[in-house]
Computed example of a mutant assay.
Amino acid sequence: MNGVPDEREAFASFLLRLRGKGIVARNLISAFEATPRRAFVPDRWQNVAWTEGMIPIECGEAVEGPDLQAEIMASLAIEPGHRVLEVGTGSGFSAAVMARLAARVVTVERYKTLSELARQRFEALGLTNAFVRHADGSQGLAAEGPFDRIVVWAAFDSMPRSFAEQLSSAGVMISPIGPDEGLQTLTKLTKIGSRFEREDIGTVRLQPIVRSVAAVI
């Protein structure tokens, strides 16, 4: 990994944490290593870019810690030919990592500022298979589906059944499901026929899904 020694040390600590959780997939680790996380977080948070906690970004939002991102990507088991939909672009880091694993990543963001910044970062890294859409992603993006994998970085209050038709056969969606306040269940939904097979894989505390596009920012 390129970068100053403290960044390499921080990344090494991140890898140790992943190994402790049983996440050892070489392709996933290589995708994280090839994606400069510090380029996706504000200057004031550079020194904690690889720590577990969430990091504040523009528009009053926050980017999930790399540990949670890695755990979810490991559960998604993204393969080279996959088409991926991400709801909640944030800084664009998770989409950039997934673009190194998949054939195509479409990421949807309700804030225009965040979508533009992510697009600039993808261009700077030469990622030609990551595409940003400034739109309301609460119902997915049916016009660009179907998708083999879907990840949503915000919580639904009930099973998001409208996404089933946007998944390919045996496709996988991961999203939190639960109340706006408190802990939510991180849920893996696998499409079997026209229904979902549900597997609960953890607990998280993320913002509820917002059903609109930001009017100004």
Rank of each mutant, 00 (worst) to 15 (best):
G3M: 03
E7N: 09
F11A: 05
S13I: 12
L15C: 15
L15Y: 13
I23A: 06
V24Q: 15
A25D: 11
N27P: 11
I29G: 09
S30P: 05
A34N: 13
R37D: 00
A39I: 00
P42H: 02
W45P: 02
Q46M: 06
E52G: 14
P66I: 05
P66D: 02
E71P: 00
G88K: 05
T89V: 12
T89Y: 06
G90W: 00
G92Q: 01
F93V: 08
F93A: 04
A102N: 12
R104N: 15
V106Q: 11
V108C: 04
R110A: 04
S115P: 13
E116H: 14
E116G: 11
E116K: 14
A118G: 07
A118Y: 07
R121G: 10
N129H: 09
F131Q: 15
V132A: 12
G137P: 08
A142F: 11
P146Q: 08
P146H: 01
P146A: 01
R149W: 09
I150G: 03
D157F: 08
M159Q: 08
M159F: 07
P160G: 09
F163N: 00
A164R: 03
E165R: 11
E165K: 10
Q166W: 11
L167V: 03
M173S: 09
S175Q: 01
I177T: 05
T185I: 06
K188V: 04
L189K: 00
E197T: 14
G202H: 06
R211Y: 15
S212Y: 13
V213M: 08
A215M: 12
A215D: 06
I217C: 11
